[in-house]
């Protein structure tokens, strides 16, 4: 009887000490998950998710305050990647992201561009090339379609063109996705 009580006291004490030590030894500093989410976001800092940039949005996702479906430049691909990373189910795109079912590209109307460089400063990914009094143009492979260059243009010479579907960019629609949408949620059984 006494032996049993003593044994369990010692056992519990030893295990408690082990856990206490491991809690100090393996303390987690900062939020490594926000870091990894931030890596997946397009870093266009466009603010269309309602947060002042990619990093704040990543932190909001990590803390569970925001859904994963608000990134418009990233679109469905980013949402699926986030769902994969976090082990959540994919959800349909929301808000500004939902309207962007097709990826779009900014195109500068070269006959109207006055070379004011205002759109250069607005572009978060440096996808617009040009200099003062020189005609500007958009580097198609860099443009994320965030539309941030539209408001500053004084002559409204930038338009958004849908990206044509080519043999390279076309892919099979996901099973269960309504036709025409690039991707809806994966149908997951409850």
């Amino acid at each position: 009887m006494l032996g049993a009580i003593a044994l369990f006291t010692v056992l519990a004490g030893a295990f408690g000490a082990l856990l206490g030590y491991s809690a100090i030894r393996f303390r987690v500093e900062g939020d490594p998950i926000a870091e990894q989410i931030d890596h997946l976001l397009p870093q266009s800092q466009c603010g269309q998710c309602g947060f002042p940039g990619c990093r704040p949005y990543a932190e909001a996702i990590a803390s569970g305050e925001a859904e994963i479906n608000k990134c418009a430049p990233g679109g469905a691909a980013t949402m699926v990647a986030l769902a994969d990373l976090l082990g959540r189910d994919p959800v349909p795109l929301d808000g500004a992201a939902a309207q962007e079912t097709v990826r779009r590209l900014a195109v500068v109307d070269e006959t109207r561009c006055i070379g004011c460089t205002l759109c250069l400063q607005a572009c978060p990914v440096d996808a617009i090339l040009g200099a003062a009094k020189q005609m500007h143009t958009v580097i198609a492979s860099e443009c994320t379609g965030c539309e941030l260059c539209l408001p500053p243009c004084p002559v409204e010479c930038i338009r958004m063109d849908p990206l044509p579907e080519t043999l390279r960019s076309w892919k099979w629609p996901y099973p269960g996705a309504p036709a025409g949408r690039e991707v809806a949620a994966h149908p997951e059984a409850a």
Partner: peptide, 30 residues
């Protein structure tokens, strides 16, 4: 009782270590 104590400690220990070394797995397992 003794085994439950042992198991609880091992699980807690694994959780602490995993939180540090593999946060993704930690969150996925939840």
């Amino acid at each position: 009782i003794a085994f439950i104590l042992v198991i609880a400690v091992v699980v807690q220990f694994t959780e602490t270590v995993m939180h540090k070394t593999s946060p993704m797995l930690y969150q996925a397992l939840g």
